[in-house]
Design a protein around this nucleic acid. Structure first.
Length: 928
RNA sequence: GCCCUGGUGGUGGAAUGGUAGACACGCCGGACUUAAAAUCCUGUGGCCCUUGGGCCGUGCGGGUUCAAGUCCCGCCCGGGGUACCA
């Protein structure tokens, strides 16, 4: 009998539940620490071993912080609204709430087995009306707000109404959908409907006709981050562009703050960079061009005003309203054809031919304000209507897209920039444009000879001086489209009167999701909620039919955990003041530009409203890598039912077949299990090598179809939760993607058994001595304390596991069973292996949980040897080592090296030029 | 294309500019055992070599340095993000 993990784990999990060991409350006497995992979507497939990786890391850190005296908030919940449950409902008629409930129960069961220290009293589910009430509430708050661009913060819409009533749009600093211009008299003369319509132009949550990503297969609109390469992220269905009336969040108003506030966050560089790219700030100028024969001017946005003398044509986006205005009657027919064709293309088709230029001439010319050249105005889909002004000045010599277009349509190319130190060349011979921002301006009267940076700055000044434009900063970040034509999401707290939206009063929230008979869209193509009976206010005003997107419920969930049962507020002021924001957030990179941008925006809005005390939600972010699957293959000889072992497969014509990794151990196939695995293989024959069938292997995504899914329950069953936890950490650096490979888990399991044996004699009886530890033992102990503490602090969980192993090996060699050594080590181990630590802690005679112990402190003076191994190098090559007393002065080290008999071997016949002594480390002798 | 990352034994991976390969898996050999399991011990980057040892080694090519896996420059390859953003 020895380490009985099954018994231990069952017992202590139950005890923790009974004792409410992990319950936390606001406690002003202790410092707080908030550790958060990205909550999961409870899918039907359950957890595989990849999912808990981040949870284990955060659990270790939580426990570590708690042992260091922090009051740690470490909650868990479920992101429970979502497409899969709805799709399943459409197929089976099963209500998504039931599927979701079942999946959550399964998740909980799996999570519980791993021994996490979550405070389950704080569990939240985004589909719970008590929760989504606050999602709806936040939406109403946004509806009732606008963004003051001067103050750079959200303000109540009432302040805007007052301004409009007094001054109209004069001196108005409000982020808007499109710039409007009207007087106070206009405003005051409008009726309710006109005023409400106008306010939608300013609200932070607003309704507008926008181009959206429409996914016909899913029957819904998708956000930009839900689309990848023209296909929906969920399901991979084609997505097309369509103009629809949708709810939007004016997240673009926050672009500058979202960008600037990124700086001090402790996030990885790549994560910050992804956010910066997504926000996409670019500085440049808006410049007006006169159009021949028209009063209206054409405004373009450019980051390269220095190249304005190289403009040879202009381009409008096909969707731009200006196209109709500009196109001449002769060109109208051709233009209509072109625009229709462009509109019909899906995003994917446009991308597929991204390198080929398409376009249509409008028939009209603009005038270059700097040299009065006539320049043709074209329309092409490579210009986007949603960015800048939807129109560009094209400089084919210095922009690769313009270059391709000019080549295709045979338009002139004028060079205005040369590479430093080079001469201008004939642009007709060019095969690509010179886009670099390193160069000298030529052919440009005002700025010849300047470098690009100077030229840009000078041209901006010139444009402003002449009154034909101004400096301008643009962002790529678009407003978030917030409507989904689906059932399984938060209903909008909105009803319509005379076709205009109004919010539902606070005290009427939550507006609960009604039950409906079928989850499909209606025959008329309306969202599923159109099937709901009584889906209107008591006065008979209809409710909004779409629901909120997935990111709605996850945008403020971290706030709700602080105060999950508060019925008066999303989070009470007291709880918020104590918990502040998330100190450590762990999750995958896949949320880099979705959830993490939306949450930051949502939090900033609530901060502006004075509802939360922190400007940023997540102080420190750590991204765990993906755990990939390690697939195994068997090789069937073609046309037979005979399988040949990996090493011999080259001698036959074989088909590799994925085989369930659960019937393979260390790449050796359990041939009997294989015969039972599928009826087809019942009579399988094997060609073995060394009496075994060896499988091939490959690293692939962990998925059912690859037969490489490893279930954590199976691992827990076989090795215990503590082994699973330690092994997941031992696998490699947290942030790195790595394949799961069950072989190797033995090493960790052996360590835990070894650790157990330190406390027990050969008969598995507790055998702890109260003797004083020897200096050797103290050295091992204190080195381990130091190493483990440091490693947890810097998230090096894999090397930390190694430190435990080294420690156990050393103590086993020393036959150390002393309480003074083992007791602190048990505390040290408890974040990683809480069950065994709890067991040993109680065996040591404690009644309270090991969670409430104190983290030991390393005593540096007990750690050190009094000698060190000094490496002696000659010209950088280490030749031998010598033992020296610690802190030997450099000159003495030098002498000892010179006097050493081995030294002469390397210095014979050579001249010693220099000796470099690195204290307590190495000596390098430089010889000629 | 652009922006991030990473490239070290058979494998996962260690290594504040200072003895490359810690720790673990696997493998080889051994002990205990009737046997197995479990446990323990020894060896294990490559190439020479009789022992002592020698030479070569961190994707490739240069450089800085007494000293480079680590820093700099130029390539090659993998992973992630993003894509007509003017």
């Amino acid at each position: 009998m020895d380490y009985n993990f099954k018994d231990i784990e069952r017992r202590w999990q139950q005890w923790w539940r009974e004792q409410q060991t992990y319950r936390v409350e606001v406690d002003a006497s202790r410092p707080k620490f908030y550790v958060l995992d990205m909550f999961p979507y409870p899918s039907g497939a359950g957890l595989h071993v990849g999912h808990p990786l981040g949870y284990i890391a955060s659990d270790i850190y939580s426990r570590y912080k708690r042992l260091n005296g922090f009051n740690v908030l470490h909650p868990m919940g479920y992101d429970a609204f979502g497409l899969p449950a709805e799709q399943y409902a459409i197929q089976t008629g099963q209500h998504p709430a039931i599927t979701t409930e079942r999946n959550i129960a399964r998740y909980r069961e799996q999570l519980d087995k791993i021994g996490f220290c979550y405070d389950w009293n704080r569990e939240i589910r985004t589909c719970d009306p008590d929760y989504y009430r606050w999602t709806q509430w936040a939406f109403v708050q946004m509806f009732e707000s606008y963004f003051d661009t001067k103050l750079q913060k959200a303000q109540p819409i009432a302040a805007l109404v007052q301004h409009l009533a007094q001054h109209g749009t004069n001196n108005l600093n409000a982020a808007c959908t499109e710039p409007l211009c009207f007087s106070a008299a206009d405003w005051n003369g409008w009726n309710e409907a006109q005023q409400q319509q106008t306010l939608l132009n300013y609200r932070l949550a607003y309704l507008a006709d926008v181009m959206v990503n429409w996914c016909p297969a899913l029957g819904t609109v998708l956000a930009n981050d839900e689309v990848k390469e023209g296909l929906s992220v969920r399901g991979g269905h084609p997505v097309e562009q369509r103009k629809m009336r949708q709810w939007c969040l004016r997240i673009s108003a926050y672009a500058e703050r979202l960008l600037a506030d990124l700086e001090p966050l402790e996030w990885s560089d790549s994560m910050k960079e992804m956010q910066r790219n997504w926000i996409g700030r670019s500085e440049g100028a808006e410049v007006q061009f006169e159009v021949e024969g028209m009063a209206d001017k054409l405004t373009v946005f450019t980051t390269r005003p220095d190249t304005i003398f190289g403009v040879t044509f202009m381009v409008l986006a096909p969707e731009s309203d200006l196209v109709d205005l500009v196109t001449t009657p002769e060109q109208k027919a051709a233009m209509d054809d072109y625009r229709t064709a462009a509109r019909r293309k899906t995003e994917r088709e446009r991308m597929a031919e991204s390198r080929r230029a398409t376009g249509c001439f409008t028939g009209r010319y603009a005038i270059n304000p700097f040299n009065q050249q006539r320049i043709p105005i074209w329309v092409s889909e490579y210009v986007l209507s949603g960015y800048g002004t939807g129109a560009i000045m094209a400089v084919p010599a210095h922009d690769s897209r313009d270059f391709v277009f000019a080549k295709t349509f045979n338009l002139p190319i004028i060079q205005t920039v040369i590479k430093p130190g080079e001469q201008p060349t004939d642009t007709a011979t060019w095969t690509e444009s010179y886009d670099s921002k390193d160069g000298i301006i030529i052919n440009s009267p005002l700025i010849d000879g300047l470098n690009i940076k100077q030229a840009i700055s000078q041209m901006c000044a010139e444009v402003e001086k002449r009154g034909i434009g101004r400096r301008q900063v643009n962002y790529r970040l678009r407003d978030a489209i917030f409507s989904r034509q689906r059932y399984w999401g938060e209903p909008f707290p909105i009803y319509y009167k005379d076709g205009l939206p109004y919010p539902i009063a606070d005290n009427q929230l939550p507006l609960q999701l009604p039950s409906i008979s079928s989850f499909k869209p209606t025959e008329q193509g309306e969202p599923p909620l159109a099937r709901a009976e009584q889906w209107h206010t008591p006065e008979g005003h209809p409710y909004e039919l779409s629901t909120m997107p997935g990111f709605a419920g996850s945008s403020a969930y971290y706030l709700r955990y602080m105060d999950p049962h508060n019925s008066q507020a999303l989070v009470g002021a007291e709880a918020n003041a104590y918990w502040q924001n998330v100190d450590l957030y762990i999750g995958g990179t896949e949320h880099a530009v979705g959830h993490l941008i939306y949450s930051r925006f949502w939090n900033k809005f609530l901060f502006d409203m004075g509802k939360v005390c922190q400007n940023e939600p997540f102080r420190r972010l750590v991204n765990q890598g993906m755990i990939q699957g390690r697939s195994n293959f068997v090789y069937r000889i073609k046309g037979t039912n005979t399988f040949v072992s990996n090493g011999l497969k080259d001698q036959h014509d074989v088909t590799p077949i994925h085989v369930d990794v659960n019937i393979v151990e260390n790449d050796v196939l359990d041939t009997e299990a294989f015969r039972r695995w599928m009826p087809d293989y019942a009579n399988a024959e094997f060609i073995l090598e060394d009496g075994r069938y060896i499988c091939g292997h490959a690293v692939e995504k962990m998925s059912k179809s690859m037969w490489n899914v490893v279930n954590p329950d199976d691992i827990v069953e076989r090795y215990g939760a503590d082994t699973l936890r330690m092994y997941e950490m031992f696998l490699g650096p947290l942030e790195q993607s790595k394949p799961w490979d069950t072989k190797g888990i033995d090493g960790v399991h052996k360590f835990l058994r070894k650790f157990w044996r330190l406390f027990h004699d050969a008969q598995n009886q507790l055998a702890i001595s109260d003797e004083q530890p020897t200096p050797q033992e103290l050295k091992t102990l204190h080195r381990t304390i130091k190493k483990v503490s440091d490693d947890i602090e810097r998230f090096s969980f894999n090397t930390c596991v190694s430190a435990f192993m080294i420690c156990a090996n050393e103590l086993t060699d020393l036959r150390c069973n002393k309480r003074a050594v083992l007791e602190p080590l048990t505390v040290l181990l408890s974040p990683y292996a809480p069950h065994i630590a709890e067991e040993l802690w109680h065996l040591l005679g404690h009644n309270a949980s090991v969670c409430d112990a104190k983290w030991p402190v390393a005593n540096e003076s007990l750690m050190a040897d009094n000698t060190f191994t000094c490496a002696v190098s000659f010209n950088g090559k280490t030749r031998f080592t010598i033992e020296l007393p610690l802190n030997t002065p450099a000159n003495e080290v030098e002498q000892m090296v010179l006097n050493n008999e081995q030294t002469s071997k390397y210095t014979e016949g050579k001249q010693i030029k220099r000796i470099i002594v690195v204290p307590n480390k190495i000596v390098n002798v430089v010889v000629s």
